[in-house]
Amino acid sequence: MATTQVPPPGRTVIEDPRTRRQRPSGQRSKTNFELYAWLFMRLSGLALIVLVLGHLLIMNVLDGGVQRINFGFVAGRWSSPFWRTWDLLMLWLAELHGANGLRTVINDYAERAPTRFWLKMLLYSSAVLVLMLGTLVIFTFDPTIG
């Protein structure tokens, strides 16, 4: 696609689906990263519907809500490998799903290149922090601490 569409005054042209996007640099992306990101959002979304809605139902209704929650409650729950696996899977899928969502939001609204770059660095740093800290806590939880 060599021609660039110029919108007539006062009109926005929305490209047909599957139109190849012209990059400002004129180069085509060498990978299908955006396709895999799009697919990941749908697959992780399906899994998260079960993982997160189940988690919210159990924690907020079936187990009596935040009133019941304390260190002993967490220790009881994480004595089971099933719930530790559930929480680990939920942590990774939710954080990656959310980080990719915010990446899209930053790309949409931050127009200056340095702003986009630094906002995304902040986003990726926070995602790495959350994933590492959460994983560490699930794997090294010690019910006899303190």
Binding site: F71, V74, L91, G98, G134, G146
Partner: peptide, 19 residues
């Protein structure tokens, strides 16, 4: 989610700080 992972991580510090 960011806040929730940080507060839950306090179980690794001490029961008292988490509670």
């Amino acid at each position: 989610l960011f806040a929730h992972v940080l507060d839950t991580a306090l179980v690794r510090v001490s029961p008292a700080s988490y509670d």
